[in-house]
């Protein structure tokens, strides 16, 4: 073990990470992200909020190894992340990524079959994860027969079944209505507690971040940087009922204070872009 004992609590980290997209077809390069430093503690629930287009998703994809940072380093469990998604990281995307040609059951089993896990073990783990995600009765259904929220659950099940130690969620409930989002939030808290995994959640909804996270990073408009990191001090056992607590209002208030100016910037930017 080369990792220092002090770092044992650090599960993944970004150091001086920037991401600049090269300009295509005569356009200027786009500085999307950074420099960003972030240490994710083992087992914590970390929320990231920020105005649209601030590079939140870029941050997630760099951490997952889906994109190479232009500068800086990414570490996961003491090893650098280099152009490949490391074993132990699971990602749930904003878009519906369920496979419409497979049943719910086969969707969930996809990763296990890829990994060559034997049939009995696959069946045990898939049945377990479907029961956990409340999808047991839909095991033989196809995604097209399910609602958007249920389809996103299928994607989460497909990720969970591989028992990732770091789960990255990229606005997974962005397309759902507000009530469904609160309920899905409860599900995510439940799976976070049960799996003991570290979770990083990207969201544009302040209330969602405030309700779910141990810590919340507020990002600036592009190029995205962390302006503030808020500790929520919620107990590990929590659910959507905390939206009624005084502290909840204080947290969202502080986040909005930070983000209001940035959101205006990004709106103005969008307005200028549209006028061009």
């Amino acid at each position: 073990m080369t990792t220092a004992p002090a770092d044992a609590a650090i599960h993944a980290s970004l150091k001086g990470v920037t991401r600049i997209y090269p300009g295509a077809g005569g356009n200027k390069p786009v500085h999307a992200l950074g420099p960003v430093d972030l240490d994710l503690r083992r087992g914590e629930f970390f929320g990231v909020v920020g105005p649209s287009g601030c590079g939140k998703s870029t941050l997630l994809e760099v951490l997952a190894g889906l994109q190479q940072p232009t500068a800086g380093t990414v570490n996961f469990e003491g090893k650098p992340v280099m152009g490949e998604v490391p074993d132990g990281i699971g990602v749930v995307f904003q878009e519906d990524a369920s496979f419409p040609w497979l049943t719910v059951w086969d969707n969930a089993a996809f990763g296990l079959r890829r990994a060559g896990i034997d049939e009995a073990e696959t069946r045990r783990r898939v049945d377990d994860v479907l029961a956990f995600m409340g999808l047991k009765d839909f095991a033989r259904a196809y995604p097209a027969q399910l609602s958007g929220g249920m389809r996103q659950r299928v994607c989460i099940a497909r990720t969970l079944v591989l028992q990732p130690r770091l789960i990255l969620l990229d606005e997974p409930f962005g397309a759902l209505d507000a009530q469904t989002r609160l309920l899905m939030g409860d599900e995510v808290l439940r799976l976070w507690r049960r799996t003991g995994a570290t979770v990083l959640l990207i969201t544009h909804a302040l209330d969602e971040a405030a309700m779910l996270s141990d810590r919340i990073g507020a990002m600036s408009a592009r190029p995205g940087r962390f302006m503030d990191i808020v500790e929520t001090h919620w107990p590990r056992e929590r659910d959507s009922t905390i939206v009624g607590e005084v502290a909840f209002g204080e947290i969202t208030g502080r986040l909005w204070e930070n983000l209001r100016g940035e959101s205006l910037k990004s709106l103005g930017y969008a307005g200028m872009a549209a006028a061009e």
Partner: peptide
């Protein structure tokens, strides 16, 4: 073909 599928493929190291 949804673009997200190629990301999924990389998550599964295909």
């Amino acid at each position: 073909i949804p673009r997200v599928l190629s990301k999924v493929a990389r998550v599964h190291r295909m």
